[in-house]
Simulated scan of single mutants.
Amino acid sequence: MPRRTMIGIMLLTTLLAGCGGGASAPAPDGDPDFTLAAQPSELNIAPARSGTTSIRITRPAQPGGVVNLKLEGPMAGGGADRIGGAFGPQQGGSSALTLTVGANVPAGTYPLTVHGTNGSVSKTTGVRVKVERWLLVDADRSANNGAPQDASRPLSALDATMRAALSGKAFDVFVVKSGSITTDVPAINGPDAARLNRYSGVVWYTGNQWDQPPTQDDLRSMTAYLAGADHKLVLQSAAFVQALDGTANVFQATDQDLDRNAAQKTFLRTQLGVQGYTFQYRRDAPGVLPGPGSVMGDLGALSLANPASVAAFKRLDDPKGQDLLTVGVGSGVQGAVAVSRTGLGSGGTSRAVYLGLSPDELAGGDVPGLLGRLLRN
C-alpha cells in the first residue's frame, strides 16, 4: 500500500475515534437528575378560557443536559373537547404552563401529567384542572317565563341581576315555564338530574312570587345532583317555604307532620340541615345581619324593602352547616335567611346554599357582593 494512502487511513481512523465512531454522543457533563413540582397544582378554568401554573424544575448543583417537558393525560391535546398545554421558556428554574380548556369540555375535574425527560432520567408531576360551567335556572314567573322559547320576551330586573352575578363565568340559562303547581306538572318542571349533572354549579331562583315553588320532581333532581361530586347548588326561594303548612312567627319542625309536604321538609332537613322554618310577609323593613364568622362578615349592612317575603330557618346542630345571613323573626329571636351546608355527595365534596329572600327585595346594601359571596361560599 502506498505510504500516502496509509497516512490518510490513519488520519481518518483517528478522526472517527475522536467522534465516537459516529455511533452515539458522549454523556453530557454534569448530573442529569431533576425534580418537578407544579405551583399551584390545581386550577379552576372555565370552558374556552386559560389558566397558568408554574412548573418548578429543581436541578443538582452541577446540572447536565436540558429537561424537556410535555403534557400528558386522557384529556390532554388540542381541539374543543380537550385541554391544551403550552410551556414557556425555562427561566430561573421554572417554566410557565398555560392550560387552555376547549369550549366543549364538560364540567368536571381532570387530572393531567407533566412529564419531564433529560436523557435517560424521567420524572412527572400532576396538575388537576377543574372545569366550571354553571346553569342558571330562571323560575321567577316574569314575562319570559310565560313563553320560554320566545327570546323576544323581556327579562325582569331580577333576571338581569342574576345573569350579571354570573358574568365572568361560563353559564347556560334554563327558563322554567309559568303554570299551576297543582295542574301543570310536569310541564313546569325545571331541569332534570341528567341536565343538572352537566354543570359544576347551579343557581335556581324563584324571586319574590309565591305561586310556583320548585316541584317535587325538581326536589328529586336537586337531591340527585347534590349526591354527585364537586357540585354546588344555590337555591333562592321564599315560595318554597311559604307553600308549606304551619308557617307563622314560630319555627315549624322539618321532622313533624310528614303526612303533608314530606318531600319539601325532607329536602330542607337532609340537604340543608334545617331543623325549623318560618315564612313572614314583612312590612317593617328589618335589617339583615351577617352570620357569625361567615363569608358575609365584611359585606356591610343590608335592609329589606317594605313589603318583603322572607323565609327564615333554624339549623340543626351540624358542624357542616352555617348561618350566612340572619334577621329577627320574633322578640329576641334571630332566624337565618341564608344558610349553607358542606360535606354532601360523593366524597363529601358537594355543597348547598339556600337564600330565603329575593335579591330584588333588598332596599339597600351590596346586592352584587351578596350574590358573589353566595357563589363562592
Score class of each variant (00 low, 15 high):
Thr117Trp: 08
Pro74Ala: 15
Ser94Leu: 01
Ser122Ala: 04
His115Asn: 11
Ala61Cys: 08
Asp33Gln: 04
Ala107Cys: 07
Ile83Thr: 11
Leu112Pro: 03
Val137Lys: 06
Asn104Arg: 13
Tyr110Thr: 03
Gly65Ser: 14
Thr35Tyr: 02
Phe34Val: 02
His115Leu: 15
Thr117Pro: 11
Gly78Asp: 12
Gly108Cys: 08
Leu97His: 02
Gly126Cys: 04
Ser54Tyr: 05
Gly65Glu: 14
Ile57Glu: 04
Ala103Pro: 00
Lys130Asn: 12
Gly126Met: 03
Val127Gly: 09
Ile55Ser: 06
Thr98Val: 14
Ser54Lys: 14
Gly73Met: 09
Gly73Ile: 02
Phe87Cys: 10
Lys123Asp: 01
Val67Gln: 12
Lys130Leu: 08
Thr125Tyr: 05
Val127Phe: 01
Val127Tyr: 04
Asn118Thr: 02
Gly93Val: 04
Gly108Ser: 08
Gly85Asp: 07
Arg128Ile: 08
Pro106Ile: 09
Gln39Ser: 15
Asn104Gly: 06
Val66His: 12
Pro63Lys: 11
Ser94Arg: 11
Ala107Lys: 09
Ala61Lys: 15
Leu136Phe: 04
Arg59Leu: 15
Thr100His: 12
Thr109Tyr: 00
Leu136Ile: 05
Ser41Thr: 05
Gln90Phe: 05
Arg59Ala: 11
Pro89Ala: 13
Thr113Glu: 13
Val127Met: 06
Phe87Lys: 07
Val121Ser: 01
Leu136Glu: 07
Ile45Gln: 12
Thr113Val: 12
Pro40Gln: 10
Asn68Pro: 00
Ser54Glu: 11
Val101Arg: 06
Ser94Ile: 00
Ile83Gln: 10
Ser120Cys: 00
Thr52Leu: 07
Asn118Val: 03
Ala48Glu: 15
Glu132Val: 13
Met75Gly: 02
Ser54Trp: 06
Ala80Leu: 12
Gly73Ser: 12
Gln90Cys: 06
Arg82Thr: 02
Thr35Leu: 01
Leu36Cys: 03
Ala103Leu: 07
Arg49Trp: 03
Phe87Gly: 10
Val121His: 00
Gln39Arg: 15
Gly79Gln: 09
Pro89Thr: 13
Thr35Val: 04
Ser41Ala: 14
Arg133Asp: 01
Gly65His: 14
Leu135Asn: 07
Leu36Tyr: 01
Ser122Gly: 02
Ser94Thr: 08
Met75Trp: 08
Thr52Cys: 08
Ser120Asn: 00
Pro106Ala: 09
Val114Tyr: 05
Ala61Tyr: 07
Gly92Phe: 02
Tyr110Arg: 06
Thr100Asp: 12
Gln91Ser: 11
Gly102Cys: 10
Pro32Cys: 10
Gly126Asn: 05
Gly116Tyr: 03
Ala48Leu: 15
Leu135Cys: 09
Arg133Gln: 10
Pro63Met: 11
Glu132Gln: 14
Val121Tyr: 01
Leu135His: 08
Thr117Lys: 14
Asn118Asp: 05
Leu69Arg: 03
Pro106Asn: 07
Pro106Lys: 10
Arg82Met: 10
Gly84Leu: 14
Gly116Glu: 07
Ala38Lys: 03
Ser95Leu: 05
Gln39Trp: 06
Pro106Gln: 10
Asn118Ala: 02
Asn118Met: 05
Gln91Trp: 00
Thr98Pro: 10
Val66Cys: 06
Tyr110Glu: 06
Pro32Met: 13
Ser95Glu: 05
Ala61Arg: 15
Asp33Asn: 05
Gly77Lys: 11
Val66Asn: 15
Pro47Ile: 12
Gly119Met: 00
Gly126Arg: 06
Glu72Met: 13
Gly93Asn: 07
Gly64Leu: 13
Ser94Asp: 02
